[in-house]
């Protein structure tokens, strides 16, 4: 397993009298090359969970494991886990930046993290922090920018001159340039118009095709339907379901977790309810729907 969460629990600000568990006993495994969507309503703990992957948040008990990196604030547990690792791996565990290079985390509205004078320099910032030389950083950054569809003529512009969608792609390039094995994105399509959404999702799809693991936190069920292969549902800080998009939308408990159903599945459910004669069990996207209806 590339990523595993083991009894991960996280409590915000224990001293605060109204503290609550943001994560309760989460167990999850993700293997290399998967495309996973993490869904659940606002406040269900999705964003907190992904932040344990690169140690921005450390589980109060239990641990998150990424390859041989152990993330936990439980010192005893950490020591125990270190015993299972080789000497080299223990050494690497002490270097946080190695984990952060491995797990690229793109936050919600990542355009707010841009700060450099030029687009290219901004993208180069990550790789140079991860100890690449100026030249190497430049090379990977140019590649990353091209992969998100930013033209060379933009490289020397100020990032603040770009449009919203462009800024977001530059910010994503800033993470891609560090060549992470695992790309985690928190609401990458939020606030974009349909065109912008599609562009971003196509970029992510391409990264996935290169064999990278994708973990996507999203509210957008159309994105889940069209791109994800596996869905993890969180509700009230607990993991309640690991399934495929198709099964999730077909099931009846989707409303229990206050998730919206894509219109396609709403329609499909209506047809089933009203006793449609043809078999709809293989309908999972628009084309397959038309295929059945048009027969």
């Amino acid at each position: 397993m590339q990523v595993s969460c083991n009894n991960v629990t996280f409590v915000y600000d224990k001293k605060d009298p109204n503290h609550y568990d943001a994560l309760k006993d989460i167990n999850l495994e993700i293997s290399k090359g998967e495309f996973v969507a993490l869904v659940g309503k606002t406040g269900s703990g999705k964003s907190t969970l992904v932040q344990t992957l690169n140690a921005l948040i450390k589980p109060t008990s239990g641990y998150t494991k990424v390859d041989y990196f152990i993330v936990t604030s439980d010192k005893k547990l950490f020591k125990e886990k270190m015993k299972e690792l080789s000497e080299d791996e223990v050494k690497k565990n002490k270097k946080l930046y190695l984990l952060r290079k491995k797990v690229g985390l793109v936050f919600q509205f990542p355009e707010y993290q841009l700060f450099s004078v030029t687009v290219l320099k901004d993208v180069m910032f990550g790789p140079t922090n991860f100890n690449l030389t100026e030249e190497e950083a430049k090379k990977v950054s140019i590649e990353a920018l091209k992969s998100v569809g930013i033209d060379e003529s933009y490289f020397n512009k100020s990032p603040f001159e770009l449009s919203g969608g462009e800024k977001r792609r530059v910010a994503i390039a800033g993470i891609l340039a560090s060549d992470p094995d695992i790309l985690v994105l928190d609401e990458p399509t939020a606030g974009l118009d349909p065109d912008g959404k599609k562009e971003i999702m196509e970029v992510i799809k391409k990264v996935h095709e290169k064999g990278k693991t994708i973990i996507l936190v999203t509210h957008d069920m159309d994105v889940v339907m069209n791109y994800a292969k596996k869905v993890v549902v969180l509700n009230d800080s607990k993991l309640v379901k690991i399934t495929t998009p198709h099964e999730l939308f077909d099931s009846d408990d989707i409303e229990k977790y206050s998730l919206e159903i894509p219109t396609l599945y709403k329609f499909k459910k209506l047809l089933v309810k009203k006793g449609y004669k043809k078999d709809l069990s293989n309908v999972y996207d628009f084309n397959s729907l038309i295929e059945v209806l048009g027969k």
Binding site: K266, F267, L270, L271, L289, I290, L293
Partner: peptide, 28 residues
């Protein structure tokens, strides 16, 4: 989208059908 795709497949949906409830009723 559904209506126009079905039209291409020679399934005519009457014009007055304007939402998925009506369409599912019609199809069933």
């Amino acid at each position: 989208k559904v209506k126009s795709s079905l039209k291409d497949k020679n399934v005519q949906i009457p014009n007055e059908i304007n939402n998925i409830e009506e369409l599912s009723d019609y199809l069933c």
